[in-house]
Design a protein around this nucleic acid. Sequence first.
RNA 1: AGGGAGUUAGCUCAGUUGGUAGAGCGCCACCCUUACAAGGUGGAUGUCGUCGGUUCGAACCCGGCACUCCCUACCA
Length: 893
Amino acid sequence: MSNELSDRYSPQEVEQSTYSWWVEQGYFKSQDVSTKPPFCVILPPPNVTGQLHMGHALDHTIQDVLVRWKRMSGFNTCWLPGTDHAGIATQSVVEKSLKKEEGITRQELGREAFVEKVWEWKNTYGNRIVEQMTRLGDSCDWDRQVFTLDSGVSKAVRKVFVSLYEKGYLYKGNRLINWSPALQSALSDLEVDHKQTKGSLWHIRYPISGTEDGAVVATTRPETMLGDTAVCVHPDDDRYKDLVGKEIELPLTGRKIKVIADEYVDKEFGSGVVKITPAHDFNDYEIGKRHDLEFINILNADGTLNENVPEKYQGLTSAQARKKVVEDLEDLGLLVKIEPHELSVGHCSRSGCVVEPFLSDQWFVSTKDLAIPAKRVVESGTTVFEPEKWTKTYLHWMNNIQDWCVSRQLWWGHRIPAWTCDDCGHVTVSVEDATACSGCGSSKVVQEEDVLDTWFSSALWPFSTLGWPEETEALKTFYPTNVLVTGQDIIFFWVARMMMMGLEFMEDVPFRTVYIHGLVRDSQGRKLSKSLGNAMDPVELIEEWGADALRFTLISQIGAGRDIKFSMQRLEGQRNFMNKLWNAVRFALQNLNDFEVPKDGDQPSKSDMTYADQWIIKKLELCEEEVDQALKQYKFSEAAQSIYGFAWHEFCDWYLEFSKPVLYGDDASEKKATQWVLATVLNRIMRLMHPFTPFITEVLYQKLPIKGEAVVIDKYPTPRNDKELLELGSDEVAFDLDLVRAVITAVRNIRGENRIKPSEKLKVIMTPKEDRGQKILGENKSAIMALAGVGDLVIDEAESLSKCAVAPVRQGDVSVDVIVPLEGIVNIEEEVKRLQKNIEKVEKEQASLSKRLSNPNFLKNAPEDVVEDGKKQLVTFTSKITGLREALQRLQS
RNA sequence: AGGGAGUUAGCUCAGUUGGUAGAGCGCCACCCUUACAAGGUGGAUGUCGUCGGUUCGAACCCGGCACUCCCUACCA
């Protein structure tokens, strides 16, 4: 039987075919022009070299929840996917494979052939991550997929480059930049990781010309002394007043350098005398410019020492040179002392090598002016950070922004559209490939070798992907995009730069909201990494546990801007939840064989509905309202928890149990109503949950008797969009059913505490003190008996029974004592203990409450309703204690 | 050094405008009750980091301290 569900949910059997079906049906497509309001999310393009990791899983799940929610809410929804060429990462991967397979370097292969190789590699492996995204269920509009080196994007990149150049926002300059010797390329400041490192402070004596004296300098990098062009002291430092202007014999080099004074020097640190190496230190660079010092570059591109140092040091690496220099200084008796010293050393975030400050010709984007509007739109709330605290981080960085070095000495990427003339030296910057110098007209023009920082093309992503610079319909419809979802680590790399470029070229913000999420960590809070051995592959997790379980685990764990500690236990718990849902539907289907979907206007009336029917509709309404509110405020975990609690603990635990006696009973109209409620609520649960757990909800939805074409395009349920249904729920009945649940729990409690087996059908007496209680219990008698395992239920005045367990139930103004005769069933002693414990607990609460109520200051100052509630509560406590005391007496009589 | 976040049950975390602490998981007991043992029912568990202040009343507001984490910058 194809319609029979197995008793376990197997995500493996349905997920991939469900995804293919969605795509075939075109459900994820967006329209360039539509009467529906637009909702656009640009996917942060993953690296083509990449594999899906847990960070993506979180990031994508958040986006997919938003996108599916909006799609179901009637929006023209565009989730635009793409991949990033990832200059350094991809080039490195291909270089490695080239070395391994063919034993050659990229230099040996040559630029053109190498780039060809990278494209081959990209075409073979570049779609892997995209395929992995489908496993997560990402509902992207695949027709719009873009790669950062596609011709359209390239056009946009060139146009932006040229335009920035013409406006003076882009310039070429010889400046000190961060240099990665391993990559042999410049890096931006952001690509340098500072690591705290244990090093040394070498104190070196620099002889003063014409005297026996020397100045002792302290340095953490003795090898750079070969490039020193000054020695510096603080102008107010009395110790060294006479030194200023003197000449130093720079050891090992035979050069003479001057002593200068500058307030940069900290008198307290080290010896108070600083060696100045303007070409290899950022602070020294500034001093060098201030004092017009010579800049001596002592390094080759690969980090070895060059011809500007004495021959014996040439070709050595920094580390080798350091050793040699220190040895030589020691031999000369110039090494005064070595102190241990902790310092932070810049490392290349890509290769891991130590970064060298290096003087070279590079292209820079001048950011100061671009940052001004980018700050303003965030200050004014045109773009909002969620959570709000990131606003501060963003603004702080914008206020301290430095020019952005955008040239990279790589081969894979957007080649800089600038041509230098061999004849006149003029630089021609142009969108089209230049064939002639725009200055002298000479045809001897040579294009820049460098490519652009990968983030340069990423900065244009929100508009380049929509067709800019063409004025496309898509661009008009979807820009500005609605939400950008990303991690905190790329606020500067990406968010800030998109903001600057979007404002400059589109004259509007690129997105209305920036949602920043945390990192996924392991259960102990450590970062996930291959080297720690705690890395997890989301695709493997999906294969074992299902995509929905993974998604729900991640989404229900998101706290406001907090990292997520991912544990397998939780994943298992959510897998169980999926199974619970599966079985709820399985149960429903088994009891809906004879159910016919009523025609419009033929829905069951309220009078045919049980208390539980009306109660669950009320609870559904509350849940839908909570989810709606939570999603609007990006409180994903609250939405998930609300769904979990409702679906499991209200719908499955209570409603399904209440439905059983009705479904198995012989009241036809009541049964019909319950069947309808069952089918209706399940339909809404599937819709409500769909953005979070798309696969299982689609599969189950398709099996329900009440359904549309597909849950993915059905309407998202909110209390506002289906008033007729929700009028069938009722606050009053919800309250009444809570009393029914309370008496059931009371019986179960007595059973559990006294270890009475479920198979033992009890006799129970319930004594409602008010008419309302009488009515409620009477009308729910069979339900109470079924759910509490009662064989004989008497609803009446209290009989004078002995040896009974009694539980006083107080629900608002309604009081009921639940009495279970225990003669011959249990140990009376146990029950006495239980009652005594109970009395103690309530007495404690009563005591603290009455103390508060007898405090005149409380009565005077507290708001009236708080006092009223307190008084009511006190009455309940007192009545409860009386009931319990009576019970105790009866038991012992 | 500057900035931010945090400290609540064994673990992971909720706790709206101050009214006397909750959830999930785990744990214990009993149960294979015809949707589900990936399950059911019941139960236990807290000086809310610490000291002080405001208040009738503080997990919550204010101040000091301790510890943890993150970010930015950097000391030659």
